[in-house]
Design a protein around this nucleic acid. Sequence first.
DNA 1: TTGTATGCGTTATCAG
DNA 2: CTGATAACGCATACAA
Lengths: 337, 337
Amino acid sequence: MTATIKDVARMAQVSIKTVSRVVNNEPHVAEDMRARVQNAIDLLGYAPNISARRLVQRRSYMLCILLHTSGFYQSALINKTLEVGYEYDYDILIQTYFPSQARSKKKLAGLINERRIDGLITTPPCDTDEFVLDLVRNSHIPLVQISPYNPSPEVPAITADDFQGAYLMTEHLINLGHRNIAFLKGPRNHRTSLERLLGYRRALEHYHIAPKSQLELDSEFNFDGGYTAAKIAMNQVEPPSAIFGGNDEAAFGAIYALQEMGFSVPQHISVCGFDDLANSKNVWPGLTTVHHPVNEIAEQALSMLVTLLEGKEIEERERVIPSHLVIRASTSHPFSH
Amino acid sequence: MTATIKDVARMAQVSIKTVSRVVNNEPHVAEDMRARVQNAIDLLGYAPNISARRLVQRRSYMLCILLHTSGFYQSALINKTLEVGYEYDYDILIQTYFPSQARSKKKLAGLINERRIDGLITTPPCDTDEFVLDLVRNSHIPLVQISPYNPSPEVPAITADDFQGAYLMTEHLINLGHRNIAFLKGPRNHRTSLERLLGYRRALEHYHIAPKSQLELDSEFNFDGGYTAAKIAMNQVEPPSAIFGGNDEAAFGAIYALQEMGFSVPQHISVCGFDDLANSKNVWPGLTTVHHPVNEIAEQALSMLVTLLEGKEIEERERVIPSHLVIRASTSHPFSH
DNA sequence: TTGTATGCGTTATCAG
DNA sequence: CTGATAACGCATACAA
């Protein structure tokens, strides 16, 4: 039988309210009394029952982050979210959510309606799910979106500057002398995916390079997609001299395909990616990529959510974090025959 | 103001107990009454407050898994744990725990003492931390260990057969014709790490190959460690013809180092790993490895924990899952000069 | 089959 | 500065 506040009160010969004050570090308690209570707490090994506290405070001190797929990017996001949640003293519930899947809906509805979570963070493409948005609207729990497809002025959002990143990377390739640059596209309903494509196109346009539709290949932003896309690209009549993977995983697939075909990277063909995942520097010959600030994103998202939870206002509701290039060994001047 | 059980009772003109029965799918409720209550529930959008339920039931329906480092293996474990927890209808709390760090201790003590979690799963090396074990013993919450360093008969444990896996892989290399096989060792306080080393040694012994201490290199089971170890190995007077990475990440590091040095895998040197992580087949030329059954481990660990939580007994308290080889393209016959 | 009363362990109100 | 007492929302003996 674990000790309750009553046990402590009895032992210290005070009221439970006084114990409560000591536990919660509230003022208006005489020093000697505080010491007496603390002593009883230590003696009994008392710790407040969190469920009781949550019941009466109507808060769960739990935050939920909604994730769809589970790749390296998601892992990185999870790690940082856990770490920051730890700092804020909130528990983090990682929830896999498959848009329009009945079971997912039920689970999330339970989480929110049963007041098990105080706030929610969405990642693409969960933010495009009307069910989620309705649920949040009706329950009035705070929501923060990461890279939302349709940012709405009411809901705080945090995004990386994907357009700028893709632009800079394309420019980097152009400056190296590349003119035939393939781009590995991602899923259509991702804002991130779209912005990267647009940044690529914009850079080509700026340098007066005619875009070719056969150089924009679908990759679904995963290894297999990148692998297939690279094979297709290299079998064209006029193969590209550089492949820009819309994310690192697609770029890894492309590199694998190229090695399989006997091409050297970057001697025969340059490859670059986007995200700067933890292992991007570990894939031979070291991937040139755009740094996607996952850590900052997680930090900011949680910071905004906690601010909201404390009833404060958020100054800027939509934050965009700039991207920057990370040049490694997978890109160089085009191969001269 | 969200609806409570009382609101439902009032609207349906029944007692709260009847509502409770309907909500919890208990028997002994007339069909028409059940329908009436269900109707009120739907109308009011009622969902039980989980904190109240937890308070009165003295259970949190939350499980915690203690993790130390955050690599690919951990990510895989997390993913499966979340998935299975979802099935069992338990929330999973991922907690990073650094043995002997004051803040970690405090956090975990809070989790347990404030009755925020119903059960605990440890992963190496958290199971070697006396503080954790004491905490669990004193609070009497169920514990399940994954690959514990010192399995104790009282606490249920689930382990993969690392010894067997390492033995089989070494045997595979020997059968290919290798005699000079380097092994990349992991951290000393991991049971897993130790078993793999012992399996390697045992196979050498069985095939009458004299072990050489200079072929057992420290790698800490990470990329950088594998990288460094491979460089050291290849600069020896008698370099190995095969490198057996104690885990996949170390093997990746070794492959990178070899490529940097101009060696081809497997033409010049064979490399293999251990774990069969999701991306092991994606690293050129496809890593030969031992399949470490993360998914099964997570499943079994949770299954055991839930069984314990339901007050039932566990038939076999220590389960060992066999390992098996996954042969890909990174191993072949030794290079003939 | 249905309902009543009590308690779970806190925090919060409002007197003293 | 301190304390009695009322919520919080639910489950559960126990009655009816």
